[in-house]
Write a protein that binds this DNA or RNA. Structure first.
Lengths: 342, 342
DNA sequence: TTGATTTTGTAGAGCGTTCTCCAATATTGG
DNA sequence: CCAATATTGGAGAACGCTCTACAAAATCAA
């Protein structure tokens, strides 16, 4: 614990025989630095192993830190977003730090505040709960990009997957295979009236629209549950107990689809011979041999890249007009879907 | 973007009719505050909605931020650690922020530096790569806890699962079922000579010891691969191609076990009738119905809680003697293991 | 009482940067 | 060659907090 005092800008300045202001300029690539001085300063920094003290920089300027709020660390889809983000930020001075948001609006608000208190330059929120007014409120004090919500706000940017289209891809695929009794499992948050712009609501709506478009309006069957293994399991149990049971189940998320698998096996039925199952997100385990789940792929990597770009624009180019960036999903067909039983 | 100026300590001081120093004392629960003043200040803070500016605090004191370096966000086991950590920190002023470390020693070092530059009060490193000397070097400048490595260092604390014992549990279980040809898949990092204290090395060693103890020294069969789905797949292919193939495969991690599943199915064999499979980590998908993988459970939650405790001790009680905390794993028996074919 | 001690509150100097002015010097145009 | 302009470098005041040192007031011991 012999903490050797950190090398500061003053040490560098002394070594290079210039003022601290000059060093700061070099650091910020600011105007008014001759090539000669620039080189001298850089040499001194290298020799002393100087690293800027981010907290101190944050006192006046930026912290070169971008906060990413993730409701659930494990979600492989979020990981893809992070990868896109990191790759885009690689080479810049910015660093992503992840704030574990949890599944409640309150805990998410807490971490968002914590990130603001730490003077992060921008916030990237992945599928945040909470109403739009609150989000806009925070967006007033820090550049912000929201991933996965279909709200369009003048105060922050949005990067979304076209969930309406994603749901349509699923329904059309199943209809094409010959299915008619196609059920959907939706993630329904209990309590307050949550915005209808959350991905889950849009997916459900997309399902409804696609069913109608295929003249299957009368077959619409939505079970409100949660996007979790247990949620999928319970919802599927309910569906399989119907007098006339569905021949295909479209779970709004892969995790829920796993629960559906379990319920179907438990009922002594086979996938896909008796029941077809479709997920959403194309998470890594959807591809696993024993599962092989047909799913909708959102290009998380691209979403992350785009989010990074938008955020940098806001920070560096001081853009203030908001942008909504929607990417289109694709359907990955696997072995969990097949024509319905004759 | 009408950023309303932040409420500072000075605003609070003015409102409460005291000095800024007094407010600071209240904030830090420092000595020398009368109950009356304390109350007045707190009231003012509440009324103004004051929130301390963490970066500014960091300039002189602490940042109340604990950095957690995670090599891979997705790993469900890491999520458990995080949960234990968060729960323990809940109610304190501390906040965990996650730094994505990546799978390379260089990128991990990068994020560690970034965290130090941001003046985090302590670092919790999960299964960090890099040699011990480097770790000790960083431990000199910040309180540190390493999770998952069996090194014992005077400079930082370690929280580990007893991997030696975990491997023994697996081997004993399989032997009990009647297996003799038990193979192991190890995660082997290419390149430099990595420390033998990484979990993967200890698990392999535990396997070796347990085999010998069961008089199966001649049956020891280790394939060097990686802890990943593909790694498991490739290793299993190699094992299944042996003249006399193993009746049980012990993958050092659940993800690798998934790859083993795929290879086994591909070879037209059944689990567990033809081949038994065991994983390690008891990740959430091990419990999934279609998989049902026998695995070793490390109590990630407890590890997180312990790490938090150790870190707080170092920060607040200024403990400097290092501690090594080892917890014991348990075996979760599922349907992927059964007696060998007759 | 009176001196000694404890408690309570404040002044003010940092912490390591950024950034606005300003001065000095170099360059240009006519 | 001189004024006008551009370039280069630095002084020094923030930023919002912490914390040492110290003074004033209150309490205690005898």
């Amino acid at each position: 614990m012999t903490a050797p005092r950190r090398v500061t800008i003053a040490d560098v300045a002394e070594k290079a025989n210039v003022s601290t202001a000059a060093v700061s300029k070099v650091l910020r690539k600011a105007y008014g630095v001759s090539p000669a001085m620039d080189e001298r300063v850089r040499a001194a920094m290298a020799e002393l192993g100087y690293r800027p003290h981010t907290a101190a920089r944050g006192m006046r300027g930026q912290t070169y830190t971008i906060g990413m709020m993730l409701p659930d660390i494990r979600n492989p889809f979020f990981h893809e977003i992070l990868e896109g983000l990191s790759k885009q930020l690689d080479g810049t001075d910015y660093q992503v730090l992840i704030g574990p948001g949890g599944s409640e609006s309150a805990s998410q608000a807490h971490i968002m505040n914590a990130m603001i208190d730490r003077r992060m330059d921008a916030l990237i929120l992945v599928a945040p709960l909470g109403n739009r007014r609150d989000l806009e409120e925070t967006a007033k004090s820090v550049p912000m990009v929201v991933i996965g919500r279909h709200d369009r706000s003048p105060d922050y940017d949005a990067v979304v997957d076209d969930d309406l289209m994603g749901a349509a891809l699923v329904v059309d695929h199943l209809v094409e295979l010959g299915h008619r009794r196609i059920a959907h499992i939706e993630h329904k948050i209990t309590g307050r009236n949550h915005p209808t712009t959350l991905p889950q609501s849009v997916r459900a709506e997309g399902y409804r629209q696609a069913m109608k478009r295929n003249d299957l309006g009368s077959e619409i069957d939505i079970v409100a549950s949660t996007y979790s293994e247990e949620g999928g399991y319970l919802a599927a149990r309910e569906l399989l107990a119907r007098a006339v049971r569905p021949t295909a189940i479209f779970a709004g998320a892969d995790v829920a689809a796993i629960g559906v698998f379990n319920a179907v096996y438990e009922a002594g039925l086979r996938v896909p011979q008796d029941v077809s199952i479709v997920g959403y997100d194309n998470t890594s385990f959807a591809a696993l041999g024993p599962i092989s789940l047909t799913s909708v792929d959102q290009d998380g990597h691209a979403m992350g890249t785009n989010a990074a770009r938008l955020v940098l624009e806001r920070i560096e180019s001081k853009r203030t007009r908001s942008v909504l960036l929607s990417t289109s999903p694709t359907l990955i067909r696997r072995r969990s879907t097949a024509p319905p039983p004759a």
